[in-house]
Write a protein that binds this DNA or RNA. Structure first.
Lengths: 348, 348
DNA sequence: GTGAAAGCGCTAACAA
DNA sequence: TTGTTAGCGCTTTCAC
């Protein structure tokens, strides 16, 4: 590997520049209130010695870490099947970078890891946390709450209205409504729905959106899926069997829609002539590659990540300056919902 | 958000347990050489107070961080288009977790970020780094080297044999050979190749593997792609145009193969009867969903991540105990190459 | 086996 | 403006 050269300390820089440690510290942290010639000298010494501040020492006194934890639960699930996760991370990373914060990734799979995450969060390693809690009965939100770390959730946590935890979500319900309305506007009357995994709020919300429009839909027009292509296939077959006269399908995500498309083709139904199909996500590698390309509801995943990070960082900054930083002290919205847009391609 | 309760310190635990700080420290770090009754008392106090050690303070004295940086360059590229990246991270995360190490993720996109990464690595925040350097002229390896942090690379870096940097890679060349041999074994004589992005070692290695078998292949049977479905389509069209008599194609990855499949279907060639197709990766959401399902070369991405982490951690552990931890001190292999396997499905 | 004390590298009062 | 000083919370000799 490589050798570990002992890094120079503040002390060394101070000696070299012929000033005190305090002055070096000031310069390194912005140079406020230090006269120009000294600043120069210090900067030169820093340069020559290749000095980089020791973050551990700094954190010890400032209690800041310039780091944020990103907790992603159960990577077994669909999070890993599509680029969702990666895009989200990219958005978060960009925002954190711009704020000079580091991203500490905590992947969990199961109860054992929960304890570890709790300990880590409580251990004061990070200034805040971004938590993706996809499942309805996830213990993570509760746990994070207890750790006492400022947190923003990705996706609406499954909590009553009483809890004012901050979260960012897509307008799943509104998007679903738009999808179904679009199908209805196309003249379709027998619109089916392939749900997502119903233990996730996003799937529940999309189902609700479907119901908002198809007010008293034939219950046989709703088939449960799980956000996977295989689940989409199964659900599509069921739908076709129960309602052969079906003329449109709204699938809870693009992956499921791709499965549905395959079944429709196999059974000789033309898309969109016989059955129109709309997905959700606008996951490019999926939506653009299906045959026919998928009409779908687009959500801006990367922006979601960005926004989560921004919200957290803002809260952390406030904390530093203002006094009323108690829970729910600010009267802003506790949930931010991002709009979705319909993307027309060939499937509907 | 949430309030920041002041966390109890070692001092507090010591007071509560009626012992010295030193004793608490010993217990917290394994309890060696502390008599049983005291251990009990301390543990109880820790429990009651909910004490969690402050990592910053600990790092300050131990110079260990129990954290490893994962550097991923240019997330714009295909890394984000397929679950590659996520799987790799999962493998890494599992191994690090088992070793009580944290994963600090550094995503970079461009030169500006390089400087930041360099600074971070040099700043001594982490014990080591796992670096994915996909591109041939990537400045990252060089930079990391200079930062003086123990590093394991993901994918063979583009370096001469002189450099003994540690890396983990799939047997791209061997896998490609196996794919092409399989096609030849099927009786195919006009085997084409759709390359990956040739600025990545993996693409180059796969092309080399292809050439190993098709020793003096008609150069027109090789078309440059870029690991994307669109690139696969373009290359396939070109191939068909140049060599209408082609009877098999080896694509550098599954995504490209899926594009090729679409073009073949559109042009009325039956797969595998007229043209047999083999991919690379065995990216499940892709390979299983194509029509027909893809015969492909499987690489175990998650295991790659795991292995990278394991190699790094082992090196770090050695460093602590042994004396000869200089660069290249051990005579073990500097590159570990994981085997690939052929997965037969319907496309060949 | 246990405690006292020094100090890791830095920031933040406070003095000068 | 600059320097002096006192810790931040922990580990680690070194005595006892």
């Amino acid at each position: 590997m490589t050798e570990t050269a002992p890094r120079p300390t503040l002390e060394a820089v101070a000696a070299r520049a012929g000033v005190s440690r305090a002055t070096v510290s000031r310069v390194v942290n912005g140079g406020e209130g230090v006269r120009e010639p000294l600043v120069e000298r210090v900067l030169r010494a820093v340069e020559e010695l290749g000095y980089v501040p020791n973050q551990a020492a700094r954190s010890l006194v400032t209690k800041r870490h310039d780091a944020v934890a990103v907790v992603i639960a159960e990577p077994e699930t669909r999070v890993f099947a599509d680029p969702f996760f990666a895009l989200q991370l990219r958005g978060i990373s960009k925002e954190l970078t711009a704020h000079d914060s580091q991203l500490v990734l905590l992947l969990t799979e199961g109860r054992a890891d929960h304890a570890r995450v709790g300990r880590y969060l409580a251990g004061g390693h990070v200034d805040g946390a971004l938590v993706f809690s996809l499942h309805l009965d996830d213990p993570l939100p509760e746990l994070v709450q207890r750790a006492g770390v400022p947190t923003v959730f990705g996706g609406r946590p499954d909590w009553g209205e009483g809890n004012r935890s901050v979260y960012v979500d897509s307008d799943n319900r509104g998007g679903a409504r738009e999808a179904v309305r679009y199908l209805v506007g196309l003249g379709r009357r027998r619109v089916g729905h392939i749900t997502g995994a119903l233990d996730q709020t996003s799937a529940v919300d999309r189902l609700d959106g479907f119901r908002d429009v198809m007010v008293d839909a034939d219950p046989r027009l709703i088939a449960e899926g799980d956000f996977t292509p295989a689940g989409g296939e199964r659900a599509m077959r069921l739908l076709l069997e129960r309602c052969p006269d079906l003329d449109a399908v709204f699938a809870a995500n693009d992956l499921a829609a791709s499965g549905a498309l395959r079944v429709l083709r196999a059974q000789g139904r033309r898309v969109p002539e016989d059955v129109a199909v709309v997905g959700f996500d606008d996951m490019l590698p999926v939506a653009e590659q299906t045959d026919p390309p998928l009409t779908t509801i687009r959500q801006d995943i990367e922006e979601m990540g960005r926004l989560m990070a921004r919200l957290l960082l803002r809260a952390l900054d406030r904390r530093g300056t203002s006094l009323d930083d108690g829970p729910g002290a600010d009267d802003g919205p506790s949930g931010v919902v991002l709009p979705t847009t319909l993307v027309r391609r060939a499937s509907a």
